[in-house]
Design a protein around this nucleic acid. Structure first.
Length: 411
RNA sequence: CGGGGUGUAGGUCAUCGGUAGACCGCUGCGUUUGGGACGCAGAUGUAGAGAGUUCAAUUCUCUCCACCCCGACCA
């Protein structure tokens, strides 16, 4: 991609109202655009990052047997009346269709997936079954805030797992838990697994929290062992496991996993026939992961005063190629040549090909956008590449081949 | 939903009863080019919306709307 064609341009100042770091940086760097409170457009750079996060999640979901589907955003209100959530789900968006039909914009998909399963699951041979989707969810939050951290329309991965028994469900819960830890590790985020707030669910209900001062959750972390608890459910200031002192930390909840209540299966008649010919109720678990919120969390955690510092796994491009002195034909030719060579090697490269823009402005944009590797071609670089990692201060000069090695084997 | 704040050019902000200006960005020309260069010349506005007060309202008053922050809320 040539920078001169990239939509839109970066902004020198954050728009008024953008207070949180992720909001400011993502808007300035041209990743997102706010349309109204809690609703954003994902611009080319932002959409790339979102897809990279999605793909990492997808890969791990597939590894643990997940089958990807896409359920509708628009739900029949009737299903929500059956579970009682048409009136009890506070942040539900409701609308009317033709003939005054009640409709719902999906904030979660139990009301869709249970009827779907009930129609297709009959035997123990059909179980277990793991279905997931990555989709836009809607929740009419009383107060949207903090950029991508709390929005009314957001991208989420939700996995629904269906089992013959609670025991089997609990075993799979551990498997998904591990998959989540792998995902966040790949995303470069260190997460704490905390006992969830809410209390509606069993002990297995847990949240994945990213510790950062700008977080809106508060968790209590033990200074001696690994225990972490959401503050909303903590009774005292001592660790329940080792009696160590608990320290308060602010955090962002990026994932939440829990067993689903039996009542959904009862309402939608989700039963199966077991080996002995007996009719039994299906046991299920739900596993959520906020894709767009995770993007915001990454910007909150990984940035400096100049801009975002994307982990290599989710950066919109692998390489930011900066051409200087491009009014000199030989330099321009060399920059173009490197650009094409990188593309031929399937390296994702953003090429700043602007001729009339000063070096300082190009560097400032590169820092703001936050792509992991910056490669400069100028009249000074000769037949080598000047490489700088976004996280490091010093630059080094390497051959094209050496650079390929570095980029293709990220650590 | 309670409390507070802000709405003026595409973006950030000045102006404050007498009909609007700077910087960034944009267009053109010229000079520049290793950390957000400079000169000259241009284009761009229903001052959030409505009502009121006034000879006169962007400016004062009221209502509404939008956005942000704190809180409440967050299957």
């Amino acid at each position: 991609m040539k920078y001169s064609k990239l939509f839109p341009k970066t902004l020198r100042q954050a728009p008024v109202g953008a207070e949180s770091i992720n909001h400011q940086l993502l808007v300035r760097a041209g990743f997102i655009h706010q349309e109204m409170a809690g609703v954003y457009t994902y611009l080319p750079l932002g959409w790339k990052v979102l897809n990279k996060i999605s793909n990492i999640v997808r890969e791990e979901m597939d590894k643990i047997g997940g089958q990807e589907i896409l359920m509708p955003v628009l739900h029949p209100g009737e299903n929500w009346k059956k579970t009682g959530r048409f009136s009890s789900f506070d942040t539900l968006y409701k609308l009317k269709g033709a003939k005054d039909k009640d409709l719902v914009l999906g904030p979660t998909h139990e009301e869709i997936i249970y009827p779907l399963l009930a129609e297709n699951i009959n035997s123990y041979k059909d179980l277990p079954l793991y279905l997931y989707q990555i989709q836009t969810k809607f929740r009419d939050e009383p107060r949207a805030k903090a950029g991508l951290l709390r929005t009314r329309e957001f991208m989420m991965k939700d996995l629904y797992a269906f089992h013959e028994s609670d025991e089997e469900r609990n075993e799979y819960y551990k498997i998904v838990r591990e998959a989540y830890l792998k995902i966040f590790k790949k995303l470069g985020l260190s997460v704490l697994v905390t006992k969830a707030s809410g209390g509606t669910f069993s002990d297995l209900s847990e949240e994945f929290q990213v510790i950062t001062p700008s977080g809106e959750d508060t968790v209590l972390v033990c200074n001696r062992c690994s225990v972490a608890i959401n503050k909303e459910i903590a009774e005292d200031k001592k660790c329940p496991q080792c009696n160590g002192n608990l320290k308060e930390e602010r955090s962002i909840e990026v994932g939440n996993i829990f067993p689903l209540k039996r009542s959904y299966a009862e309402v939608f008649n989700l039963y199966f026939t077991d080996k002995g010919g007996e009719k039994k109720i299906v046991s299920a678990g739900c596993f959520g992961l906020g894709i767009s919120r995770t993007m915001g969390a990454i910007a909150e955690v990984f940035h400096d005063d100049k801009g975002i510092i994307w982990p290599e796994t989710v950066a919109p491009f692998q390489v930011h190629l900066v051409g200087l002195d491009l009014e000199e034909e030989s330099v321009k030719g060399e920059a173009e040549r490197i650009y094409k060579l990188l593309q031929a090697e399937r390296v994702e490269v953003l090429f700043d090909d602007r001729v009339e823009v000063s070096a300082g402005a190009k560097f400032a944009d590169a820092d703001l956008i936050g792509i992991s590797y910056r490669v400069v071609i100028s009249k000074k670089t000769g037949d080598q590449l000047e490489v700088k990692k976004r996280v490091e201060k010093e630059t080094k000069f390497v051959t094209f081949e050496q650079f390929l090695e570095i980029v293709k084997n990220p650590r």
